[in-house]
């Protein structure tokens, strides 16, 4: 057990024993090797389920949102004297804490409804990179030993270096420490200060228009609209998503490449100034659609045009919830 894991368990036990929180949301060992699953701990007997390792991938903020909003719904028809509060504790790395900041900015719940167990994070293992590292074979067993990932496949044992299989978004992360926290499980660590954070965007933008479209449409053709990306995204919490609406029917229900494209364009557009680059959508995508290349563009515009980074500061307004009189206007068409 690593020291961070130990501290998470200690803090979770204290919070539950002192009845400070109703549930602790964290990671537990998954059913497959080198995988973890989110877990919901409500009693201190179960505290040993909590783990922390580079296989902890998901952004847990979405579960904080759903736990709190479900509780609020359940309290609607309760007599005032019987109403209860719910406090959720969450194991939060940098990106999770940024998503929590977005929720707080968007008035989804109050700061006192959530207890943040902050964790310094050096990145997680990317599913696609790991798969490439073992030539697409099924991982039968795996373990992490310091900077090495020991993997066993049907063709025998191999060892990969952790940094090699760390996800791209983690390697460019500027928020290795949580931006807000109530408790830190471990010392703050320096962030990866990538110089060309937006290289992926600049390279793509330099391609000719036709090639960009060809790439975009080919990627979106892979999409089977399982909506896993939407379901996992902490910023996608609408009660009724536009894809589920039938009046008007924004996105057709059938199998059509154009509807895939429109769905992805609009889902990504909703991420303008709200995407924390946690990589959860990429991680859950069953078809391996290259979503990050497009989401990162919105990130870049957000920073270039409005000097904003999603969820980086609690008291800085999101780009689309405010405006300035002298905003960038070069794109406005003026006739000769």
């Amino acid at each position: 057990m690593n020291p961070i894991e130990e501290k998470i368990r200690e803090e979770a036990k204290r919070l539950l024993d002192e009845k400070k929180v109703d549930v602790v949301i964290g990671y537990e060992t998954g059913t497959l090797p080198l995988q973890t699953a989110p877990c919901f701990i409500t009693s201190s007997d179960e505290i040993d389920r909590l783990v922390w390792n580079p296989c902890c991938k998901q952004n847990l903020a979405i579960y904080v949102h759903s736990a709190l909003s479900q509780h609020r719904e359940s309290q609607k028809r309760v007599k005032p004297e019987d109403k209860t509060d719910k406090v959720v504790a969450v194991v939060a790395r940098g990106c999770t804490s940024r998503s929590l900041v977005i929720h707080l900015q968007e008035k989804q719940y109050n700061r006192e409804d959530v207890v943040i167990i902050g964790i310094p994070c050096q990145g997680y293992i990317d599913k696609n990179k790991l798969e490439a590292g073992v030539d697409g074979l099924e991982v039968i067993a795996g373990s992490i030993d310091g900077d090495a990932v020991k993997v066993e496949t049907s063709k025998g044992k191999t060892e990969l270096s952790l940094i090699e299989v760390t996800a791209d978004n983690c390697l460019e992360c500027r928020f290795c420490n949580p931006v807000i926290h109530d408790f830190m499980a471990g010392e703050a660590i320096p962030a990866y200060e990538s110089d060309d954070e937006f290289a992926v965007v600049d390279d793509f933008a330099a391609l000719p228009e036709a090639e960009r479209w060809a790439y975009f449409s080919a990627e979106m053709n892979k999409c089977m609209r399982c909506y896993a990306c939407r379901n996992i995204c902490p910023s996608c919490y609408c009660k009724v998503c536009f894809v589920d609406q039938s009046q008007p029917e924004w996105v057709g229900a059938g199998v059509n490449p154009s509807d895939n494209q429109v769905f992805q364009i609009m889902r990504m557009f909703h991420m303008a100034g709200r995407c924390v680059d946690c990589g959860s959508c990429v991680e859950v995508c069953a078809e391996g659609v290259d979503l990050r290349k497009f989401l990162k563009k919105l990130d870049k515009d957000d920073l270039d045009l409005y000097g904003h980074r999603a969820g980086a500061e609690l008291d800085k307004e999101a780009p689309l919830s405010t405006f300035r009189e002298n905003d960038e206007e070069a794109f406005i068409f003026e006739p000769e």
Partner: peptide, 16 residues
């Protein structure tokens, strides 16, 4: 204006 700045950049980025 802010929405459209994002939108036009994004549509152009994907190749429209």
């Amino acid at each position: 204006r802010r929405k459209f700045a994002f939108l036009q950049n994004f549509l152009n980025y994907i190749g429209i």
